[in-house]
Design a protein around this nucleic acid. Structure first.
Lengths: 354, 354
DNA sequence: CTGTTAGCGCGTTCAG
DNA sequence: CTGAACGCGCTAACAG
């Protein structure tokens, strides 16, 4: 365990002494903004710092400066590719700004989310990004809003991903329009009877995608029957189970199923296969998100592409740019939605000829 | 944007004043270790804190206490399911200890990794977990070791995942044994001619798995020809391309291919299919890791199960428990490897009868 | 340009 | 058990 006497890390004070200069000079050359330090001293400080292996204490800097270099990210589930892709984007962009990202997972529990926001606030992060999927029936809705408002009042920047709520900055994801476009595309392929695999009523994202899909069908004069909407957890297993239930009930003419996200859609594929049917042929499948794995399942999945990583980058940008240009009208005024795109693959080859 | 006058967050000072007590008393009831505060005062402070929506400044606490409540996690790529699963475990376990996790991505660049370790050290994290895949040819090897040693000397705890190096705490993953066991299982299934899809020579994990596989075959009297080892990036696309190259070169009797991780294996499946062959039938495929998606590809993938999330949890535990029981012999003394298990699925049905 | 000094928000002695 | 005072590591005026 790398033994050796336990020494405390070198402080700025140590560096100053070692270099024979004042604390202020050391601070200026090491962390000060505009360089105004004699080259002579400058190099001496730098050398001393290197010799002592000095690393500035970020906490102390934060206290002194009254501002941290941290951004907090809240997701529902880190292992879910939807969130991990967004996280990758946030981290990549934060890196450019030399910001540190702290991450927490709500597990889709509103109470936990509130707790986490409270805890994370203690960090005084510059930005707080909420990508955790919100619910419509949130009992903690009021407290959360209040918490976020307080955080903003204290100079923090909140960015919501996907849902436009609370009058806060938002990276808008037009779930309705995307789902509607998908519906249109499927109808164009020749499908007429649909089922939807979705999550519990509470989840906004799921609800919006279902609504959009329904609208898209309606525009083509097709009605989605309530009986043909099955529900499960917002996970792979949830998709598997809901689809299994659908198959057991009997397809009754349903030609294609839309799973409100790719993770569920992938579960649907397996459920279909495990039921002895051939996905795509016996029942077409479409998803939403275009996560990486959908290219590699069989058949490759038709879906709505969402630039996940870009969304993460954009979320951070939104908060940062807005902070720079404070005084301007808030950029949330015109939150153009992130563009989505229907990607047709082999899981929806068109209805089989009878 | 939630307007209203910008106010600074309430400080402990504010709470004390509001409650009509001293700073010390407020500190004691709010964050103090053992409670020794008059119930009278206690409630007054608590109420004042609630009224002011007080949230302790973690940076200030860290400075005052000389210890943070942070754990730093370094991974190669956040969007990669291997790492995001580990991250999920770390975050889950950290949550139990009310620790905050900060995350950074090295993108498999040793220079970046070193930079990041340096930067992260500024946070004075209690624990630093390196899950980023290490290379064998690291030019930054010395500096990194030195950096980590300095961090440990300052009281930090380093945990390495998968590779036993530098004489540091390690969550050992026996890649060799796992790959050897897989080789044995495949031989038992009847396969005799193998190819391996692996990454560049540099990556430890890839190298160890290849070596283990080779050993496993050797134990059965089968030799893996160098010609039958193809290389690509350590990603899905890398697996796809390497496999494509293998197919173009001509299988020449090869019956099964072992991709050194599941992500590559999934790419291999698609490559085989895109070449007009049937994975499993024309060429068997096996991977390593047992990431979530391999159950849903076709055919489901034979692989070596690695308890990714548990590894994350265990990494943090290792550092924390070790810190508590300092004085005992370091637990790295007996770093039992995480158990792996061969999972045979349909991608290796056994060689076809000729 | 440099050094001195006063904070930043908080934990923790140390006397009362 | 309470409060006053000092210190943590660092930045930012402020004088020189």
């Amino acid at each position: 365990m790398t033994d050796g006497t336990r020494s405390t890390p070198a402080t700025l004070h140590d560096v100053a002494r070692e270099a024979g200069v004042s604390l202020a000079t050391a601070s200026r050359t090491l962390n000060g903004s505009t360089r105004k330090v004699n080259e002579q001293y400058r190099t001496r400080v730098l050398e001393a710092a290197a010799r002592l292996d000095y690393s500035p204490n970020l906490s102390a800097q934060a206290v002194a400066r009254g501002a941290s270099t941290t951004v907090a990210l809240l997701v529902a589930d880190i292992a879910d590719p939807y969130f991990s892709s967004i996280a990758a984007g946030v981290v990549a962009e934060a890196d450019l700004e030399r910001l540190i990202v702290t991450m927490a997972a709500t597990q889709r529990d509103p109470e936990r989310e509130l707790e986490l926001v409270r805890a994370l606030r203690g960090q005084r992060p510059r930005v707080m990004i909420l990508a955790s999927s919100r619910r419509t029936d949130e009992p903690t809705d009021g407290p959360l809003a209040e918490e976020l408002a307080a955080y903003e009042r204290a100079g923090g920047r909140v960015v919501l991903i996907s849902r436009n709520e609370y009058d806060l900055r938002t990276v808008l994801l037009d779930n309705r329009a995307g789902a509607a476009a998908l519906a249109t595309a499927l109808v164009e392929l020749g499908y007429r009877r649909f089922a939807v695999v979705t999550a519990g009523e509470g989840l906004r994202t799921a609800r919006d995608r279902l609504a959009g899909f329904r609208e898209g069908l309606a525009a083509a004069g097709i009605e989605l029957r309530d009986d043909d909407v099955v529900r499960g957890e917002f996970t792979r297993d949830g998709g598997y189970e809901a689809t299994t239930a659908l198959l057991e009930r009997g397809l009754d003419g349903v030609e294609a199923v839309f799973a409100v996200n790719d993770v569920m859609a992938v579960g649907a594929l397996s459920a279909i296969r495990d039921a002895g049917l051939e996905p795509g042929v016996d029942l077409a499948v479409a998803g939403f998100d275009d996560i990486a794995t959908v290219r590699d399942v069989t058949p490759p999945l038709t879906t709505v592409r969402v630039p996940l990583e870009q969304i993460g980058r954009r979320a951070l940008r939104l908060a940062l740019d807005d902070a720079d240009a404070s005084g301007r009208e808030p950029s949330a005024a015109a939150p153009d939605a992130v563009p989505t795109e229907v990607v047709v693959r082999a899981s929806t080859p068109g209805p089989r000829r009878r």
